[in-house]
Design a protein around this nucleic acid. Structure first.
Length: 431
RNA sequence: UCCUCAGUAGCUCAAUGGUGGAGCAACCGGCUGUUAACCGGUAGGUUGUAGGUUCGAGCCCUACCUGAGGAGCCA
């Protein structure tokens, strides 16, 4: 028995092979049957002809229900009539389990509510497999890039004693009688790690209890957070654009089958090369005002504003130097203009919005204390964070890249909830 | 939290205030190249919930529930 994966069939033309998988769909024309089989590596059509197989094999194929698990043996043939390029002329089918005959997901259209209720089965379909495979590639590329550039992975804790940035709503948990929270960012811990290892990153889930209801929001999402000692705002942006370029090029190189399945316009991704355009907040406001957006200096950019700005470019664009008042307390003020901070948001093209938020961090002890007081944050909660400024402080920078938004952009997916295996949203905690 | 929209068969959707239907899925039968196969047949319903208007409500009104899209917040 020559057990292979469907994606390896091209190397076994003319050979008899065995494939372990599931019945995705079945068509029949009397004495000939077509079984669409999937095995996780791909999809292929198997042909069963009545006079060429045992009577009980043909009978079994007649009864097979959608998603039944089977072990199929047959001859690999190249065939242009097949949309997969190859076919399997089936000799034998061993049944592992006859699936119940009420499999809920048909090949016809379904509404999003139904599909999300059946997410555990929905991920078996070609489109969802393509998206989640690209997600895997994105994660792999991020780690490759960072590992190859001397970053050390130092994960941040998920259970934290207080809000890190003092802004978003957090999920509260009981920690042996003490209130604790699920982390909304590991950044502060990454700063500590950067002072130990130089260049570090964390990669993991992050939690926001905000009641967001848009295609760009999840209440649990994954983020990679690099942090670098001795790197300023400008060096920070260079790392970000190189990372994003690497991610996109890796997806193009290793996920062509998936991107094709998704109908992605590859020419748009091929343009994602450094350097990326940069726009200061001041310039962004002017551009927005000139085009009829009524935003005033000092307000954070709204979602429609970001969409407009990103649509002006065919590459991701950095929006830099926001007013300090609309950003977090730890961001380094610009030397000659303390009302703005050395930060940058990276907006993905095609209306996908912010995929990175980053900044240079305040490294001066007195300035950081002053900023904490201005924001009315409890200073004793930040004692350990202030220690980093007391003992060998250096300029440093970092950023957070959202995995699902990045995957949504690369795969041209409408909603981030399809870019994570089991999305957690305002209205959904199951399955 | 606010704004908009929707809820009818397992799924996707029809039904002027007047006997709730179709396609797919399931089940039975037919077909030797199907591509969401096709053809014939069978079965499948407390129209989200509660109240109201009416001779009569899936349809109109009120409240609530659930979901979706968007805003704010953010990655």
């Amino acid at each position: 028995m020559n057990l292979i994966k469907i994606k390896e069939m091209k190397d076994h033309v003319g050979e008899e092979v065995t494939i372990n998988g599931w019945l995705y769909n079945k068509r029949s024309s009397g004495k000939i049957k077509f079984l669409i089989i999937r095995d996780g590596s791909g999809f292929v059509q198997g042909i069963v002809v009545k006079n060429e197989v045992d009577e009980n094999v043909f009978e079994l194929c007649d009864k097979l229900t959608q998603e039944s698990s089977i072990s199929v043996s047959g001859i690999v043939r190249k065939d242009e009539r097949s949309p997969f390029g190859f076919e399997l002329t089936i000799k034998n089918v061993d049944l592992i389990q006859m699936a119940f005959n009420d499999y809920p997901i048909s090949l016809k259209e379904h509404g999003i509510d139904f599909l999300l209720d059946n997410r555990h089965l929905w991920i078996r379909t070609p489109r969802q497999q393509a998206i989640l495979s690209v997600r895997h590639e994105v994660i792999k590329a991020i780690q490759e890039f960072l590992n190859n550039n001397d970053f050390v992975r130092i994960d941040s804790p998920i259970i934290t004693p207080s809000t890190c940035e003092g802004t978003s709503d957090l999920f509260q948990i009981d920690y042996f009688g003490e209130n604790a929270y699920l982390s909304q960012t590991g950044q502060l811990y990454q700063e500590a790690a950067a002072m130990a290892f130089g260049k570090v990153y964390s990669f993991g889930p992050t939690f926001r209890a905000e009641k967001s209801k848009t295609r760009r929001h999840l209440n649990e999402f994954w983020m990679v957070e690099p942090e670098m000692a001795f790197v300023d705002h400008y060096g920070n942006m260079e790392v970000q654009e190189k990372l994003v370029e690497y991610i996109v090029q890796s997806a193009l190189e290793n996920c062509s089958r998936e991107l094709k399945e998704l109908g992605r316009d590859l020419s748009k991704l091929e343009k994602i090369k450094t350097p990326f355009p940069r726009l200061t907040y001041d310039e962004a406001i002017k551009l927005l005002n000139k085009n009829g957006y009524e935003i005033q200096w000092g307000n954070d950019l709204g979602s429609p504003d970001e969409t407009f700005l990103s649509n002006q470019f065919d590459k991701p664009v950095f929006i830099t130097e926001y007013p300090a008042e609309c950003k977090a307390f730890y961001m380094q003020p610009k030397e000659d203009r303390p009302e703005v901070v050395l930060c940058a948001d990276l907006l993905a093209p095609e209306g996908y919005g912010e995929i990175i938020g980053g900044s240079q961090r305040i490294h001066d002890y007195d300035l950081l204390v002053k900023r904490l007081k201005e924001e009315n944050l409890p200073i004793d909660m930040y004692n350990w964070y202030l220690d980093l400024r007391k003992y060998g402080t250096v300029p440093h920078s970092g950023f957070g890249l959202g995995i699902e938004r990045t995957v949504a952009w690369i795969t041209n997916t409408e909603h981030v909830r399809e870019c994570i295996p089991f999305p957690r949203t305002l209205s959904r905690i199951r399955p």
